[in-house]
Nucleic acid binder design. Structure first.
Lengths: 346, 346
DNA sequence: CTGAAAGCGCTAACAC
DNA sequence: GTGTTAGCGCTTTCAG
């Protein structure tokens, strides 16, 4: 076994061993044209022998770049974000970047802290899905002003100009609601996240549009918000109770986020409410298990992996081409999967 | 809005603005006793005004420490690992460390690459769950020899001495198998990961022990391995087909990993095999949706969050107390949830 | 109580 | 083709 606490070899060590200078060694290792083939070989061999690896902290300091990107999401343990991160990691890895992940747990405070910490780490770029509490974009604008490339995904903010990657929430919600209507439901409730998240507004709009086009009157009582994005079950339980105990009980529910969707299903099952007969259920969710739920759950799926991958490509593009290009908003289509939770067969 | 590309303020900027020297400013900001209260206040105010944040790359270089830890898992998009990472992030964040995540996709090649990259990043410590392909621990031993603190979790290796955090796989599998037997099943098959993963051996042992104690003869044909840990559905499909088409068809299946468990359920459903009557099913899985699957799925749950948190505590302890303490292996109990997929009611 | 200077490991002008 | 040197931003002796 190798010796304990053997310090990592530095350029100087290689220089000493080969009798060359630091700079020559550095150039040789980076395959510079000003170094002879013979020297290059000598250096390469020696470096391998000493197990030399460049110290990236030193390089970061020198270049002012770290080849790492910060990622800010609300919760890793959420199928959608896990898939997004998978996409991010895949592209980042391929391009030689590493990713530093932080969670906000839907708290604006945590978001601020995350950004401060990430910025101090000299990240080269930032990928962020803002919290449901986030109202302004001052903190992001400040980082942008300091030259940090930023790409927003999923929950974005219109208070900042930047590349954005989102799902077509409006169309997804519209298609979902239309499907419920076509399946015969008329009193369709909507349980969604915090009112001020971008995705909430977009999904709500799709929902309203579908109702309107089918001449179904909107019932404001049928729209319930979960201020914490469904983070705690209580807010979902409450929303559902209000809907079910109201005078105007809905005949279907359209849920707007992963957590809300699956928790709603669990609660309905617990209350022995028959789906889809008594109540139809359709929601946004990225779980791969929708098919084997009971009942199989009709869902709106967002291409999380692809969204993460695209956001990362845009970010790295921006990091490496310093020219300030036009910012684009890439919109990914959602997929509507029709399963048994919305087939009342009437 | 702030000015574009305003460079981040450095210590020198604060020094210039206050008319002090770099070193005084540095000490003041770190609340050194050798600096007067008045100066400290002056510096603090100025730093806030200039929006000064220490450059961590410079600090890393100076200290030879980065306050970041590397995390290596096979797939982020897996409920168990997502929960583990959540636990890791929570503790790391609390102690001021950031986490750099890489995925191996169950490939030993990727594992090697990840480790090399992470080491170059000057991580202060490493948390790793080795791939199903990993046989030796040379790569880890080398890093350990260079002084890198390492904690293994989930899939560990007995070829390296280090802190380890695992679930009680043997007991979990034993309890699961016992439950199947008590439910009346006698021909219990086992679909598991690659033969050389630590968790595979432990779970297999628990399975065998339960059979033995109940005087049920072990049928080697009833044990199926998925070399890629169930990463591709094909290997699971094949394992299942072999079991179901064999002369000695099992009456229950005990699956040994998240992916294998849910995919098996999906496949059985697709083949219209009645669960639990025709075939009982029980498996390791950390999905929160087990309750609302069809049928509700009996499962062995591992405390992923807690495992991640504990592993991180051990790692940071090791990073910060340089004394080489005794290495411990922390074993977390699993939980057996009995649901309908194993209640044949016979 | 404050400042000057050295150095962490690396790279890139700029010499020679 | 190779070497010298300065400096990225920070901390820490050591002097004053």
């Amino acid at each position: 076994m190798t010796q304990l606490h053997q310090k990592a070899a530095t350029l100087q060590d290689v220089a000493d061993k080969t009798g060359l200078s630091r700079s020559t060694v550095s150039k040789a290792l980076r395959d510079s044209h000003e170094i002879s083939g013979k020297t290059k070989k000598l250096v390469a061999d020696c470096a391998r022998e000493l197990n030399y690896h460049p110290n990236l902290a030193a390089r970061s300091l020198r270049y002012g770049r770290s080849r790492s990107i910060g990622v800010v999401v609300s919760e890793i343990d959420n199928p959608f974000f896990a898939q997004v991160i998978n996409g991010i990691e895949s592209v980042a890895d391929e391009k030689g970047y590493s990713i530093i992940i932080t969670q906000t747990h839907e708290s604006y405070e945590y978001e601020l802290r995350s950004l401060r910490d990430l910025y101090s780490k000299s990240i080269d770029g930032l990928l962020i899905s803002v919290t449901t509490e986030t109202q302004d974009a001052e903190h992001l604008l400040e980082l942008k002003a300091r030259g940090l490339p930023i790409v927003l995904f999923d929950r974005v903010s219109d208070k900042i100009e930047a590349h954005k990657v989102i799902a077509d929430n409006l169309k997804g919600a519209y298609a979902a609601t239309c499907h419920l209507i076509q399946a015969g439901y008329r009193k369709i409730a909507h349980i969604t996240s915090s009112a001020n998240a971008s995705i909430t507004a977009e999904r709500l709009q799709g929902y309203k549009l579908a109702l309107q086009e089918h001449h179904i009157e909107l019932n404001e009582q049928h729209i319930k918000y979960c201020p914490h994005g469904g983070k705690n079950d209580e807010e979902i339980k409450e929303a559902l109770a209000e809907l079910l105990n109201s005078g105007n009980k809905p005949d279907a529910v359209f849920t707007a986020s992963d957590r809300i969707t699956t928790t709603t299903l669990a609660l309905l099952r617990k209350n022995r409410i028959r789906i889809p007969e008594e109540l139809g259920l359709l929601g946004f969710t990225n779980t791969h298990l929708a098919d084997i739920l009971n009942p199989p759950l009709s869902s709106v799926f967002q291409p999380g992996f692809e969204m993460g991958a695209k956001a990362t490509q845009l970010l790295i593009g921006q990091i490496e081409n310093k020219r300030t290009e036009e910012f684009e908003t890439v919109v990914f289509p959602t997929s509507l999967f029709i399963r048994n939770s919305t087939e009342p067969g009437r």
